[in-house]
Design a protein around this nucleic acid. Sequence first.
DNA 1: AAAGAGCGGTTGCGGTTGCAACGGGAATAA
DNA 2: TTATTCCCGTTGCAACCGCAACCGCTCTTT
Lengths: 148, 148
Amino acid sequence: MPFMLDEFLPYRLNVAATLISRRFAALHQEETGISIPEWRVMAHLANEGQVSIRDIHARVNLDKSIVSRAAARLEQAGHLRKSGHMQDRRLISLELTPKGQDLMQRLGEIADAFQARLHAELGPDAERFETMLEQLIAGAARDRDTAA
Amino acid sequence: MPFMLDEFLPYRLNVAATLISRRFAALHQEETGISIPEWRVMAHLANEGQVSIRDIHARVNLDKSIVSRAAARLEQAGHLRKSGHMQDRRLISLELTPKGQDLMQRLGEIADAFQARLHAELGPDAERFETMLEQLIAGAARDRDTAA
DNA sequence: AAAGAGCGGTTGCGGTTGCAACGGGAATAA
DNA sequence: TTATTCCCGTTGCAACCGCAACCGCTCTTT
């Protein structure tokens, strides 16, 4: 029996992820001009208030260089403000500006609406699906730790 | 209630997909030196025999330029052969070489083993999970078509 | 106190991606 | 036939990614 690419889980996951990301981007990209890394940084800042690059890197699965550059672009656009940490001068405090908070509010609405739509498409087992995604992520983390 | 990135489906999907892809790459990359686009091209060729670039592009969710470059690398490495189509001279026939078939056989084994492991980690509902992934993909395709 | 190791953020660089433009070939229309 | 339109694969280009090197700062060790 030949190998079937369409039944290969990593392949399907990847296709689903890129398609869904594209869909989401189409919903807000033109209005907001925000890229995916920038989106993650902002969403994290909206929850956490003052945060350093390292925190975001550890939390949202982005290389620290990517976080750094995303933060630079967001600062350039006036969405966030950088300031030095007073105890540890290596650290940088990132914080949303009012403008950034407004944008994040708008993005949150779009995201919530999209999420609702996806749940509708998935039907009643959407919760179950998310749980299993979580399992996959946890499994991958475990795998990486045991490999090291 | 603030927006929670971790509960946002596109985010989770993306994280899961990249982690799983990385895991899979770690299993074969060193041995085979094959990238993800190359892997998709080869897997498709293994099933379909003679195929053009356009077919692969339409089938495995890769831009035609990416398919073109992946094919060039694979040809360079001796894994596939290009030949002109005789009816339509715009088309190109791609076909695995014996060496490419051997490699694909090996990759298939690794992929099957990995797939089995993922299913084990997911438990009895793995099938259900895949079905829902399929739903997401189909939904995205539908969305794109209606948008156009 | 001084040296060394370790950490946080930035930057440089090679490779990849995605899009648009191109050139050759085929198909349709007049 | 000729001309126009469309299609296929390649290539140019700008942006992005991931990794590693680096610099300044902090902590530990002696």
